Amino acid sequence: MTVRWEELADGVYARRYPDWDLTVGLVVGDGACLVVDTRADAAQGAELANAVREVTPHPWTVVLTHDHFDHAFGVSAFLPCAVWAHENCRRELAARGKPELALPDRLLTDRAVLDIGGRRVELVHFGPAHSDNDVAVHVPDASLVFAGDLVEFAPPGSFSAESFGTDTTLTGWPGALGGLLALGAELIVPGHGAPVDREFLLAQQDILGRLITLDGELRAGKIDAAAAIAGSPVAEDVTRAALRLG
Rank of each mutant, 00 (worst) to 15 (best):
A43H: 05
T213D: 14
A220P: 01
D10S: 15
T166A: 12
T168Y: 00
R198D: 00
W173Q: 02
S158N: 10
F164T: 11
L201I: 13
T109N: 00
P57V: 09
P233I: 10
E186H: 07
R106F: 10
V135K: 10
R53G: 03
V113T: 12
L22M: 04
V151M: 06
L123N: 00
V137A: 03
R198I: 00
E152W: 04
G148D: 09
D134F: 03
P155S: 14
A235K: 05
Q44T: 04
V189C: 15
E100W: 13
L107K: 11
F153S: 14
L170G: 03
D206K: 11
A46K: 10
R240Y: 10
R111G: 01
G193V: 07
L181T: 06
R53M: 01
G97D: 04
A129H: 09
V121K: 07
G127H: 07
I229H: 08
W60I: 08
G74P: 04
V27P: 11
A82V: 05
N133M: 09
H192D: 03
D224S: 06
H192I: 00
N88F: 07
K222N: 07
L243H: 01
K98Q: 12
G175P: 00
W5T: 11
R53Q: 05
V52K: 01
S143A: 14
I212D: 06
H66Y: 07
T65G: 03
N88P: 00
L211D: 13
V189W: 13
S158P: 08
E217I: 01
V52G: 00
T23Q: 00
D19P: 09
L22R: 12
D115P: 11
G11W: 05
L181Q: 07
M1K: 13
L211R: 12
A112H: 06
G118S: 01
V196T: 13
A136Y: 06
R106E: 15
A14W: 14
P18N: 10
L64N: 04
G209M: 02
A230W: 01
Q205D: 01
E162I: 09
P233H: 09
E199C: 01
A42Q: 08
G209Q: 03
V238T: 15
A241I: 09
G157C: 02
R111L: 04
S131R: 04
F146E: 08
A228V: 13
P57L: 02
L144F: 08
R4C: 02
A241Q: 13
C33S: 14
H68V: 12
L107G: 08
A82N: 08
P57W: 06
G231E: 11
L123C: 02
L22E: 11
V196Y: 05
R90P: 08
D70L: 03
L218I: 11
L101H: 04
F69N: 10
